[in-house]
Design a protein around this nucleic acid. Structure first.
Lengths: 216, 216
DNA sequence: CGACCAATTGAATTGATTCAAGGTCCGTGG
DNA sequence: CCACGGACCTTGAATCAATTCAATTGGTCG
């Protein structure tokens, strides 16, 4: 969609804290940070895979499409997350910036220690996606939403206020719902006094217990 | 459920052909083959993770449960598949024998080459599970079933006759459906002359094109 | 043969979607 | 500064795909 621009400033050192990711950084040749505007493509389905990407700020969605245009978002990546790791030499998913994201390219050095790190990364991602499988296959709309919100809370370690950088349609395509259903489910949670909608993209969790109770 | 028994015969060398897996075998200390009867547990949720498991024959299901007992099967493993690889030191899923399976334990030697192999394995699994995410999130019952059957065909490289070692309930829990729906969808495919039900566990594909066309 | 479990089929129900109508927010230009 | 347009979000009503509940059939094993 729109073209990205390389940030001229503050691009040499990452601000990421996660020790796992920092370990990875030390074994790669990190590039500078590139800014991807809203909805711009980071890599496309079929593109050559290889380098990894580190989210410095903003949000990224990893997606797949059916041939008739239905979209499934397989994951959202937030600041500190690494993505782009794939089987084979072609990307089977595509990645887009959700809200304007700063992405650092990590060029893999071909060392054994690096592979070890990658394995840890892959396993963590794998554990995540398996939880997603359970969510998609066996939870109802309320449970999906509650699980999503709890996950966001943990990732943002926000005490109370959750930020929704993505729009309703993205949430729907992540949870296997329609955007109307997402809207309605939020209303249900609101009516139950579990959350409060501060704005379209800000949610206050009033009753974390109740929200967690819905996850199952 | 039932207890496993170690096979006294033909247990020292694996019959697996997949070069990726054979490479893995050469870097592990393969144990003997243990037979797990129908529905017996191979490892449970919360068990200590570590060794890998190689399916020598039969079928294994990898599952997760919600706290109220809903089950999602995240994958089926057939002869030649390796499973048991997980993040952290506790299994977050559990594995059961579907139909009586022979399982070889692979004790990881802690070498770098081994990690490299594991990475390849993890990435392959990752690619698989992502396809499953799309299936669960965005396909309807017919499409799910068609995709499942095509996948089985490819894995069994069967020309025409597909074997269903698992029962309807397992298929349902894999596809995010109910067993009644699985039954009905099979009937629809039968009525469309796309498949023929030779027996409960044998399906003849009459029109592979049509079946593939349903997959999207 | 009878018991039991799995699979099929039918009928009623329901959770989520689809279709449609407003409402809100925000940026742009008069 | 306010009006307008467009994109996104919310809400309602009707519809539908899949589930639930309930028989019935089929297959297997003692």
């Amino acid at each position: 969609m729109l073209s990205q621009t390389t940030l001229p400033i503050a691009s040499t050192t990452s601000t990421v804290r996660d020790p796992e990711v920092r370990g990875l950084l030390s074994l790669t040749l990190p590039g500078s940070v590139t800014f991807y505007p809203v909805d711009s493509v980071i890599y496309g389905q079929g593109d050559t895979a290889g380098p990894l990407y580190l989210v410095e700020f903003g949000t990224v969605r990893i997606c797949r499409m059916t041939s008739d245009g239905r979209r499934q978002i397989t994951s959202f990546c937030y600041a500190g997350d690494v993505f782009g790791l794939e089987d084979g030499d072609e990307h089977q998913s595509y990645a887009e910036s959700v809200d304007g994201a700063g992405i650092r390219l990590l060029r893999p050095t071909d060392s054994a220690a690096f592979a070890q790190k990658l394995l840890g990364l892959a396993l963590r991602r794998f554990a995540r996606v398996q939880k997603h499988v359970l969510l998609l296959g066996r939870l109802n709309a309320n449970e999906k939403m509650a699980t999503f919100l709890i996950d966001l809370m943990e990732r943002q370690d926000a005490d109370g206020i959750i930020n929704l950088p993505m729009q309703r349609n993205d949430i729907a395509d992540y949870l296997g719902l329609t955007f109307e259903t997402v809207s309605r489910v939020l209303r249900v949670l609101k009516d139950k006094q579990i959350i409060r909608l501060l704005s379209v993209e800000k949610i206050e969790v009033l009753d974390t217990e109740a929200l967690a109770g819905l996850c199952e």
